[in-house]
Amino acid sequence: MFQRNRSFSVLYGIQRTLLAVFYLVSVLSLFWIIFYLLDDVLGLQGFTIILVTIAYLVLVVLGYSFIHVISYIPSNLAGAFDPVQNAIADGSIQSAGDLARELSAFMVNFFNFAFFDIEYALVKIKNVRSSWPAEKNSGEGGLNIGELDKRNETVIETIYVGKIKVQEKTGHLYLTPMIFGEENLGYIAVITRHRLWKIFMHLLTEFEDHFVDDQVVHILAGASGKLA
């Protein structure tokens, strides 16, 4: 296999490294200021300083985890999704059902982060039967597909549907419409372990807009000779 230069990957890596260094310098500087205030200015006892230090370290770890997620996804999503696009291009994925299964499996495998963990993903393309990834097939998992179909007709970006119980576990259900121009191509429904922050809901919308809808159009056009 040909080896190609990965300039963008290198640039993204440098960018993430600089961000991590900046974060580390910032938290160390802030910790020094806090320690100075607690010890020299307020004159608090060592036990109190230890408790504050532990709480601060917990916040630092959580903050770094969040920064890792929001910096990792944009720099790695395109490369991770490339095999799916290649499979469409070389004909390995030929039908809407095949694409739905591949897409749902991709989302479960890729979006596996502390703040953004997709447990299940269901993809429905037009009138094709909705598909879960094979390794996490739960049927329709108690989902009301008819209700999702109706909600999909009235939304243009990712929405929070509500809590849902799948295989004895409680999760949070989100619906992302697949829209190409004025054409509604179907939707993606995902169940996450934790309720998502708004930034991750927007990311789901952006993922559909920049990566998914045009691939769905290719498959539908190839299968029928036209989009409709």
Rank of each mutant, 00 (worst) to 15 (best):
G146S: 07
K169W: 11
T170M: 08
Q15S: 15
R16H: 06
L42T: 02
L122M: 12
D82T: 13
R129K: 14
R151V: 08
L38S: 08
A78I: 04
I125A: 01
A223R: 15
P74W: 07
V108I: 04
N112P: 00
L185I: 05
L59M: 14
V216E: 07
R151N: 13
A20Y: 03
V25F: 15
W132P: 05
M201P: 11
I118E: 00
L227N: 11
I164V: 08
K226F: 14
A89Y: 11
E183R: 13
K126M: 09
G162T: 10
L11W: 08
G222A: 01
H202R: 15
Y56L: 05
V27G: 03
L19A: 06
A105R: 03
T48N: 06
N112T: 04
G13D: 03
G63W: 15
F200H: 01
V52L: 10
S7L: 10
K126C: 07
S26Q: 12
V60D: 00
G186T: 02
T205D: 00
L77C: 05
K165M: 13
Y187E: 02
I156N: 15
A223H: 06
K226V: 10
N5R: 15
L204N: 05
G225E: 04
K169A: 04
F31I: 05
I34E: 07
D90F: 12
T53N: 07
F2A: 12
A114W: 15
N144D: 15
K136F: 02
L185W: 10
L220V: 09
I54L: 13
L38I: 07
S131G: 06
V212A: 13
I191A: 03
F47I: 08
N86T: 09
F110T: 01
K169N: 14
T158D: 09
I70R: 12
H172R: 01
A87N: 10
F35P: 02
L44Q: 14
K165S: 14
K165P: 12
T170S: 14
F207H: 05
M201A: 10
I50N: 09
F211H: 02
S71I: 06
G142C: 07
L44Y: 15
L143H: 05
M201Q: 14
I88M: 00
M201H: 13
L59I: 07
N109W: 09
L24T: 15
A100Y: 02
K150M: 14
R4L: 09
L148R: 12
L30E: 08
Y56K: 10
V108G: 02
P133N: 04
F110D: 02
K165N: 12
K150S: 12
A78F: 08
R129S: 07
F2C: 06
A189L: 06
E119I: 05
S29R: 07
P74D: 00
Y12F: 15
G43C: 01
G186Y: 02
H202Q: 08
L220P: 03
